[in-house]
Amino acid sequence: MAQIEREQISQRQMEGIQEAKKKGICYGRLPKQYPENFLQVARLWEQESISLREGVEKLHVSHSTFSRWLTQHHFK
């Protein structure tokens, strides 16, 4: 009996999420905004003028965030 109830709850939840997405409601954390100097720092990193660690320190973001941004913008 409990398993059937859990399945029904899950089904109603999925339907609710689908309806919310149709209305344009976004789920999850909003993406972090790029700092104004991101492209400048990324170009310096690409030219090997600075290290990844130095880029992270200049932008005040984490290593993984800076690496992901570089990948998204097709640097190296």
Rank of each mutant, 00 (worst) to 15 (best):
M1E: 12
A2T: 13
A2E: 10
A2F: 12
Q3C: 00
Q3D: 13
I4A: 13
E5N: 05
E5G: 04
E7V: 06
S10W: 05
Q11K: 07
R12W: 08
M14V: 05
M14F: 11
M14N: 14
G16A: 08
I17T: 07
Q18E: 15
E19T: 11
A20R: 10
K21N: 14
K22P: 05
K23T: 12
K23G: 12
K23D: 14
C26F: 15
G28Y: 06
R29L: 12
R29G: 11
L30W: 04
L30A: 14
L30G: 08
L30V: 09
Q33V: 11
P35T: 03
E36Q: 04
E36K: 02
N37E: 06
L39C: 02
Q40E: 07
Q40Y: 07
V41M: 03
V41C: 04
L44I: 07
L44F: 08
L44Q: 07
W45T: 01
W45Y: 07
E46L: 00
E46H: 06
E46P: 01
E46C: 01
E48K: 14
E48N: 09
S49C: 10
S49M: 14
S51E: 02
L52F: 09
L52P: 03
L52N: 08
R53A: 15
G55C: 06
G55Q: 02
G55W: 02
E57N: 14
L59C: 05
H60F: 06
H63S: 10
S64Q: 15
T65N: 08
T65F: 09
F66T: 00
F66C: 03
S67K: 13
R68W: 08
W69N: 01
T71N: 11
Q72C: 09
Q72K: 09
H73W: 03
F75T: 02
